Amino acid sequence: MALKKHIIFPKQQQLLQAFGENLKLARKRRKLTMQDVADRSAIDRGTLRQIEKGNPSVSIGAYVNVLRVFGLQEDLLKLAAADELGRKLQDLEIL
Rank of each mutant, 00 (worst) to 15 (best):
A80Y: 08
L89Q: 07
D75I: 04
E74K: 15
V37S: 03
Q17W: 05
A38F: 04
Q17P: 03
L3N: 11
K78D: 13
P56D: 07
L3M: 12
D83H: 03
S57F: 12
N55M: 08
S57Y: 11
G86D: 05
A26K: 02
V37L: 08
L92C: 02
G86Q: 03
I60A: 08
P10I: 06
A62S: 15
Q73A: 13
L85I: 13
Q35G: 03
S59N: 09
D44E: 09
L77T: 04
T47I: 15
E84W: 05
L32C: 03
L23M: 15
Q90K: 05
K11D: 14
K11N: 14
P10N: 10
R40D: 08
G71M: 05
L15W: 10
S41Q: 04
I8G: 00
I8D: 01
G46F: 05
A2I: 11
D44H: 09
R40F: 06
L79E: 06
A62D: 03
A62H: 04
V69D: 01
R49H: 12
A42I: 01
F19C: 11
E52I: 03
K4T: 09
D36A: 06
E93G: 06
Q50R: 15
L77K: 14
R40E: 11
F70M: 01
F70S: 00
L25N: 13
L76P: 01
A80I: 00
L77H: 07
L25P: 02
K11S: 14
K24Q: 12
H6V: 12
V64C: 04
G54D: 05
D91G: 02
L15H: 13
A42L: 11
L48N: 01
G46H: 12
N22C: 09
D75W: 07
L92F: 04
